[in-house]
């Protein structure tokens, strides 16, 4: 993606207060995610290494802004640390899915023919699964854990990118400058990486940024269904679920991590919304077709 594109988008975001909010939330989330381990008020509580018999189910106070949980641990520290895991999940899922999906789409689109058809049929088969269902089945197979959650989500995710890249490559490869490159005798590989890929990547990048929010949301869903990360990892979805059993005595255990998910995903989605508004109509249509809003 060209630098000017970013500049234009950035200026558009600045004009709109809602989009700006999104940008601020996302920036804040990334900062907290990176710094989390160093700014925890109660690090041992956050990592789930201790329990405090006397401090169970304390309501929110100055000392514990989000209260304490069933093991007497500080919920605020756990939510802070949760940001890091959510960040890892978001980057991991989207990154891994791109790593599988982009080459698939690129090869299928550029080579075309029988290989392309077969690759796209495989992609379609995966797309026939309702989105989260495949991830749930995979997560259950792989067992609980952070890495497994990322793998499960990425595997159910890559076909979207493959298809997006495929569509892009198909439209780009017939453009005059690609023909020109062929004439001057560049190898197919060089053409693919030097000319086709950079141009196909723009919409994919936008889509990927947009999907980070969904990745956090879906990982939380997996945790809720009991096939996501494993305790005592303070992933937000898991924190909500763990608070469920004591929600009548201590609503704060579930409320705050859920709010954290809501705000973060909202930030990503507002930003993605702004990007979609800002980018060209062609891209917008693709995003709409892909069914992800």
């Amino acid at each position: 993606m060209a630098l000017e594109d970013f500049k234009i988008i950035l200026s558009l975001i600045k004009q709109n207060p809602v989009s700006l909010t999104g940008l601020v939330i996302v920036a804040g989330f990334i900062v907290v995610g990176v710094l989390a381990p160093y700014i925890l008020p109660y690090p041992e509580d956050a990592w789930g290494e201790v329990y405090h018999l006397e401090k169970r189910f304390l309501p929110p106070s100055l000392e514990h802004p989000f209260g304490t949980d069933d093991m007497g641990r500080d919920v605020f520290s756990r939510v802070l640390l949760g940001a890091r895991f959510s960040l890892i999940i978001a980057v991991g899922v989207v990154g891994l899915a791109l790593l599988i999906g982009v080459p698939m789409g690129l090869i299928a689109g550029y080579l075309g023919g029988r290989v392309g058809t077969i690759l796209m049929r495989i992609t379609d088969m995966f797309l026939a699964f309702p989105p989260l269902l495949l991830a749930i089945a995979l997560a259950a197979t792989l067992g609980r854990g952070l890495v497994n959650t990322i793998i499960a989500l990425a595997i159910s995710w890559w076909p979207w990118y493959a298809r997006l890249v495929y569509v892009q490559v198909n439209s780009i490869k017939s453009l005059p400058y690609v023909d020109a490159a062929k004439i001057i005798g560049l190898s197919p590989l060089a053409i693919m990486f030097k000319h086709v890929l950079p141009n196909a990547l723009t919409p994919v990048t936008v889509q990927a940024a947009l999907d980070m929010g969904s990745a956090i949301l879906e990982a939380a869903g997996l945790s809720f269904l009991g096939v996501g990360v494993k305790p005592p990892t303070p992933e937000w979805g898991l924190l909500v679920t763990e608070g469920w059993s004591s929600i009548n005595v201590a609503w704060w255990i579930s409320l705050f991590p859920g709010l954290a998910i809501l705000v973060t995903v909202l930030g990503f989605n507002l930003l993605a919304d702004a990007l979609r508004e800002a980018s060209d109509p062609r891209l917008r249509r693709i995003l709409l077709i892909s069914g992800r809003v």
Binding site: Y51, D70, P232, E242, S245
Partner: peptide, 25 residues
């Protein structure tokens, strides 16, 4: 939930005598 809490207390307690525990649901 009872097993989970038990597991977490055991993990924290055994750490006190120098035994590290990974708990796995």
């Amino acid at each position: 939930i009872y097993e989970k809490r038990t597991a977490e207390v055991i993990k924290a307690s055994l750490a006190k005598i120098g035994i590290k525990v990974e708990i796995r649901p």
